[in-house]
Design a protein around this nucleic acid. Sequence first.
DNA 1: GTCTATAATTTGATAGAC
DNA 2: GTCTATCAAATTATAGAC
Lengths: 189, 189
Amino acid sequence: MMAKATDTAERIVAAAERRMRDGGFHGFSFREIAADVGVKSASVHHHFATKQDLAAAAVRRYVDRHMSALGDPDDPGRTPDELIVLYIDLFRHDLVKDCQMCLCGVLASEAAALDSAVAREVRVFFDRNRAWLEAVLKRVMPNARPGEIRGKALTATATLEGALLTAHCLGETEVFESVVVELAKILSG
Amino acid sequence: MMAKATDTAERIVAAAERRMRDGGFHGFSFREIAADVGVKSASVHHHFATKQDLAAAAVRRYVDRHMSALGDPDDPGRTPDELIVLYIDLFRHDLVKDCQMCLCGVLASEAAALDSAVAREVRVFFDRNRAWLEAVLKRVMPNARPGEIRGKALTATATLEGALLTAHCLGETEVFESVVVELAKILSG
DNA sequence: GTCTATAATTTGATAGAC
DNA sequence: GTCTATCAAATTATAGAC
């Protein structure tokens, strides 16, 4: 029985995400992706014309998955504290499971050498994270200045990205937990 | 007049550092380095046999420069607060000047796809940063548990790396400053 | 120490059969 | 939609003249 066409495309972006999370945009090739999926590199090109197209699609899929997991920041059925724990857990999950970096963290570090279309998608990740966190933080500190809310939101993402980076490099997930303890003080104070 | 041999080697590692800070280990080639320096790629190989050798040398040079700029964390002529400001300034400098990432931050993000010798040099960066910060923090909170000192030291580096990453990607140095404001609370409290 | 020349491999990408 | 076959270019790296 033949797999659906969309299935192959899906497996291609999944393989691209995995490869990029390990070695960045310049750290993978069409042939590696093809081997991962079990097709030939010409088939990868059939689904994604250029490497930039493939990378951009992988980032879009990653960001959508990330934001879907976060859900509505104004959901009255969840407390701000629960939402912040959820946010941190999302970054922690792939680190403790596979010592994996955040896809957008990896690509952000090589932003200067990235295709502009790919770089734009990566910036979307940070923008949507900021907007989601601002909504959550507005609930916990309704009287804070917008600039302060924005600063704390950016700090939360930046801190978690840095914690991921450091823990990933040192191979110590405990580093991530150390940082989370300190981050909690920022978000509550 | 001919430039000294060591001069060419120095200019080669400098070019490699610059290229890697933009695009990571897989984001540069010997020919690009050669063109930057004004020699042929065979001459680059004369000074550094392999790409791994060149990358490792660039990291060692970067780390030595970084630690030299920090100096002695126990220097009685400088207060802990001054030292922490110096530490933050060191990360800020190349960001505001050229929107440049930290070399070891870039390489840490692609650690999984890095040659083991290069990866080891990158880990040295984080280890020496931690040791320096632990010495400084011991002075400002002499009664804190070693685990807490270590946690705060790791958090400081991780937070600054994340701030650099985010600001670099978004092209907004203000993001870095927002994070620094919050970081100050961690290091003082 | 730098060069020319080149080997050996890999890269992103395309043409065209099935 | 997948394949074989291939291209043109780029890659790391080496051999040997000067």
